[in-house]
Amino acid sequence: MLTIRLAPGNRLRFHALLLCFQIACIALAGWKPAGASAWLAALALGLSSAIGWLRALYILRQIGDTPVSRVASAAQGFVALRGQGRPLSGLPLLSPYNGLPVLWYRVLIEERRDDNWHEVSDEESEACFLLEDDTGTCAIDPAGAELHPAHRDCEIRGDQRVTQWCLLDRETLFVLGDFRTLHGESLTRSEREAVRDILADWKLDRPELLRRFDTNGDGELCETEWEQARAAAQQEARRERIEADQAASVHVVRKPTGSRPYIVSAVKPWRLNFPHRAWCGLHTALFLLACAGLAALARTGFINRGLF
């Protein structure tokens, strides 16, 4: 069953709130069909419908027009990836619902009061997990993501109802987000700092330092000999940096900056498009309704002064 986490900033929550506003506009226009309130309501309905349509179309374009990349060859920035979900090395993430290993979970506990269910707790995991394809792996940070899990379990335990949504190991995932490659030491230590540290280590073994760079044999390093030592240290620092980058490169997908979506889904991409297509159609219908209302008001040729 497709379930969507309605986190703050979720695109579907935005459309739901916008729809509530549009219903209020329709109600206001029906209350004073010949007043200025009807004009304002029709204008607000048309404007909000246009905004909602553009927002839904933007998400559709992001999902449909972003080609799926391979982890090893993905460009830095906004990408789409597809692969199998895998846990990080170490202890597996265990579900508080049934104790089984999962990649991600959300557990909602509700309590029956007066024949209605009231939320008691809503717990969600924050641990990263991996996406793996045939070229490599990358870490997925679920913070801020619009998650579309395919698995839902519900159980009534006395007066409590426990519902869990989860992503499972080796489940095929579609991810749309900001792809970055982190390079370990190269991110935290500049070449100048590396050269300084290498020279400091060499100075601790003075006989070896003199053996390598004291070309005139006077027991001291002149300016020219120090330049040779610095050049050798720079070469060593560059070699270490290349080796560190190759050994410690980590790919991570995170929430993009700006308005671009961050989606982690266990369902097919075409199913992700369906709700946004539905919102596009609904906003189009409401926009046409607003245009028809404005046209009808324009034909009356007057505005009732008992407006509000």
Rank of each mutant, 00 (worst) to 15 (best):
G99Y: 14
R106Q: 06
S89G: 12
S89T: 15
Q84I: 04
Q84V: 02
Q62G: 04
T66L: 03
W117C: 06
L91F: 01
A72K: 03
V120F: 04
H118M: 10
F78P: 02
S73E: 10
G83S: 08
R61Y: 11
G83D: 10
F78K: 03
D65Q: 01
D115N: 09
S89I: 15
S69F: 07
Q76E: 15
R112S: 05
I63H: 06
L88P: 00
S69Q: 11
G77H: 03
I59T: 15
D114E: 12
L60M: 13
P87V: 15
V107N: 15
D114F: 09
P96L: 06
R106A: 08
L100V: 15
V107G: 15
S73T: 09
N98S: 09
V102A: 03
A72I: 00
E110Q: 13
I109V: 15
Y58R: 14
E110D: 11
R55P: 07
P87D: 05
R70I: 04
G77K: 10
R86D: 03
R55S: 12
L108G: 12
N116S: 10
N116L: 07
D115K: 07
Y105I: 05
G83V: 07
L103S: 05
L108S: 14
G85T: 14
G64F: 03
V71K: 13
Y97S: 12
V71I: 11
I59H: 10
N98W: 08
E110T: 11
D65R: 01
R112E: 15
A56S: 15
Y105E: 09
P92N: 02
N98L: 07
A72D: 12
P87Y: 08
L94A: 06
V68H: 07
L60S: 09
L54C: 09
D65E: 04
S69C: 13
A75K: 08
V68G: 07
G83W: 02
L93A: 06
E119R: 14
L60Q: 13
A56M: 10
S69T: 00
P92R: 06
L91G: 01
L108E: 14
N116M: 04
R113I: 12
G77T: 10
L94H: 07
Y105M: 10
Q84S: 05
S69K: 08
A74N: 08
V102K: 05
L93C: 02
W104E: 05
L93M: 08
D115I: 11
E110I: 11
D65S: 01
Y105A: 11
L57E: 15
R70P: 13
G85Y: 14
V71L: 12
V102G: 00
V120M: 04
N116F: 04
Q84R: 13
Y105H: 14
A72F: 00
P87C: 08
D114H: 10
L108C: 13
L103H: 07
L108Y: 11
W117R: 08
